[in-house]
Structure formats: structure tokens, C-alpha cells
Simulated assay, not measured.
Amino acid sequence: MAKGKDGKTVVESLGGFLREQRLASRLSLRQLSEQVGVSNPYLSQIERGLRRPSAEVLQQIAKALRISAEQLYVRAGIVSPAEHVGATVELAILADAGLTERQKQSLLDVYSSFLALNAGQDPEATQHMEK
């Protein structure tokens, strides 16, 4: 398996990240497994880095945890960060070793909300605000 900068395999770091996000969401392993539609032991194996989930399972986990599925795909090694030319801000945040996982998620949430806010505005109003 591919090793990351910290010496952990991609699956181990993904599992740790998922556990951190689950705990931050105040969900038990059983609650998350029910929401995702997988067994409790299978989800536990994913968190411990013993199993590599499919993209479909990751998508369901992301939905249940209310986080970006793309973020999980990159962490799981399913999608290469280089493939996301337009996602440089998100990938830079994810790659920053100086931030905790919770801080990274907070920054991603703020960035996403700004993009959504700007997408709903009139382009001329946005230009006036920049001047």
C-alpha cells in the first residue's frame, strides 16, 4: 500500500480521519454504520485501516458526516490531487500539516460557503465589492 509523508498507509490515515470526523460529529460507530448502510464491524475495520472502502461507501460516509466526498476520495487515494486543477484551495488546505483535521474541515466549510454565496450573487455586484 502507498505510504504517506507520515509513514502511514493511505488507508490508515483515511481511517484515522474518518474516526476524527465521526467523533467530531458526535456519532457512535453504530449510528454512523446505520446511516451509511454498512455493518458496524466493517466500519470499524475501515477506521482501523484494515479495509479500504469503495468510492460508493466513501460517498455515503461523507454524506452522513456532512463532509466533502472529494476530500475522502483524495485521502483514500482513489483520486489523485493532481486531477483536481480547480480544487487547488481545498487540496492546499488538506495538505497543510500545520493544521488539525478539525481546522482543515472548518476552513473548507468556510471556503465552500463563500463560493456558494458568491455563486448566488449578481456578477456585477461582486465586481463592485472587489473595487
Rank of each mutant, 00 (worst) to 15 (best):
G4E: 11
K5C: 04
G7M: 11
V11F: 05
S13H: 13
S13F: 11
L14E: 01
G16K: 01
Q21K: 05
L23D: 13
A24N: 12
A24L: 14
R26S: 12
S28T: 15
L29M: 04
R30Q: 13
V36R: 03
V38G: 02
P41I: 00
L43D: 03
R48C: 08
R48H: 09
R52H: 13
P53C: 01
P53Q: 02
S54D: 04
A55M: 09
L58P: 01
A62E: 02
L65W: 00
L65Y: 00
L65V: 01
R66D: 15
A69G: 06
Q71M: 15
L72T: 05
Y73D: 01
Y73Q: 03
V74P: 05
R75W: 09
A76M: 01
V79F: 01
V79A: 03
S80W: 00
H84G: 14
V89S: 11
L91Y: 04
L91R: 05
L91F: 05
L94A: 08
L94W: 08
A95D: 04
D96R: 04
A97C: 06
G98P: 03
G98S: 10
E101G: 14
R102G: 11
R102L: 15
K104G: 07
L108W: 07
V110D: 07
S112M: 06
S112N: 08
S112C: 05
S113V: 07
F114D: 07
L115G: 08
A116M: 08
A116W: 06
L117M: 10
L117C: 09
N118V: 14
A119V: 13
Q121C: 10
D122H: 07
P123N: 10
H128Y: 10
